[in-house]
Design a protein around this nucleic acid. Structure first.
Lengths: 146, 146
DNA sequence: CCAATTACCTACTGTGTCAATAGGTTATAA
DNA sequence: TTATAACCTATTGACACAGTAGGTAATTGG
């Protein structure tokens, strides 16, 4: 299950992209528009800044802004930054201490295949794919998807 | 993440299929072979019986046995029985009280698409696909997979 | 027949994560 | 210089996960 940390992070990115006016956007506005507790969003947005997804400026007139073009935000990257590895089972998540049964584990191929599927899916999606008004018009690579 | 409930359930099914000798197999044996706490397995196996995946017989000479051919166990069904819906977000899991934002939620299509992907994947896999020695020899439909 | 074996049942526990809340401090611009 | 905003630490209640503990009921091999 994708938790609110990942989902809210994506919504923040969308909100910033759709309300881009050249100036920084205060969290208060985002929280109000998205109907999410501002206090809770603070925690999430802090991690997004630490992870290099956003820049924040303090003080009057401050707020947050995107630091990339919407086409350069990979959804999989955002989710893994906020929630840790997408891997469906622990033995695929931390490659450091592998499961001793891995060598002849009959179920491992199942999880591996699903892991690959999931990874490929979320790493093929970009923020620009989620916007109503798509990122920079005309520059979008994959335009026609269902 | 798939929890131990789902993963252990699948391993129990595999163990029963691979050690099928016509008689019921006591949980003690399964637990020993799979190196899983027998006490914990009791809980899991109880739900498997309740869910119609296994039959259990008490008393001396008792134990558990499959009640279908390995080809008739759908992995997705097993996982959803043990862990609840596969849906990646709550608003797709319980259709009873839908999210009020669903109508113009920009991220919903993303989760829907992923949900479909996940569902199709796990509902296309069967217990027989996981066995070293595939189910009933000669009757297997999909034999050559990677 | 009975004692060992086996499933089956209820209850409890420790650990961790999720989703927030609370209250403060620092930075900045009008 | 004050209102505004980000930034920081700590705490909370609810819940799920992964077991553990101890008992009861059913069945059969000896």
């Amino acid at each position: 299950m994708i938790s609110t940390r990942g989902r809210y992070a994506i919504r923040v990115l969308i909100d910033l992209a759709e309300h881009d006016n050249g100036r920084a956007i205060p969290l208060k506005d985002i929280a109000a528009r998205q109907d999410i507790s501002k206090k809770y969003l603070e925690i999430i947005v802090k991690d997004m800044v630490a992870g290099g997804l956003l820049t924040g400026t303090s003080g009057r007139g401050g707020g947050y802004r995107l630091c990339r073009s919407p086409r350069d935000y990979v959804i999989g990257e955002v989710i893994e930054l906020m929630e840790g590895p997408l891997a469906p089972v622990a033995c695929l998540a931390d490659c450091d201490n592998p499961c001793p049964r891995a060598a002849d584990c009959v179920t491992l191929p199942l999880w591996s295949e699903y892991d690959r599927l999931t990874h490929d899916f979320f790493y093929s999606k970009r923020l620009s794919d989620l916007l109503r008004r798509n990122g920079e018009p005309g520059q979008s690579v994959n335009k026609a998807v269902e």
